[in-house]
Amino acid sequence: MFQTADMFKAFAPFRGKAIVIPGRGGRHWINLSDQPDRDVPLGDPAMGGHASFSFGLAMARPDEKVILFDSEGDILMNMGALTTIAEKSPKNFYHFVLDNGVYATTGGQPVPNAENIQYDIIAKGCGYQSTYSFDNLEDFTNNIENILNQPGPVFVTMKVAPEVENTPINQRVRWQKKTRDQTIADLQKELGPRRS
């Protein structure tokens, strides 16, 4: 098991110009990123949708590398999305999953069958050609460059330490620096018109 913040530090040197959807670990990414207009910290529009959103973005922009940091709770909520992603197999899509075993933002209750699920096996079974699983930072660090240099879709699950929140949701400090609308507008300006 390793820390989400350390994972992002190991990932940062290899980001290149990729679009990054930092998901629920975004607070650890937002101050590391040197290209905020290519970051898409959406918060949580509706749980379970980040994979499909990022997949759609990758489909719309096949010339851009799209990297999602998903969570296992989101995966469980919409597991069927993995089959659609695998069917279309966008070569520019990199699907990382932070598996902390719990619903951290609701107080740390375990996800169903938390100790026994192997998300990389599920992704493989859904048709992802390339899957990885890491439970320590050293192995992750040693492999991240190779992972990002191969064609997608790649699925990478990581056992990370839970960061449990118990503060009432309306008292939590918002870590995003921009509104959602501004985030999207900045991304679209950065990317320019889509080639048809």
Binding site: G56, R61, T84, R194
Partner: peptide, 26 residues
């Protein structure tokens, strides 16, 4: 037209959002 087959209807909205943000028209 490119067909994107989903397996639960809720996925349609997040998928369409990603496509639209990227400049496609779903």
């Amino acid at each position: 037209l490119e067909l994107v087959t989903i397996s639960r209807e809720g996925q349609a909205f997040s998928t369409a959002a990603g496509l639209s943000v990227g400049g496609a028209k779903p």
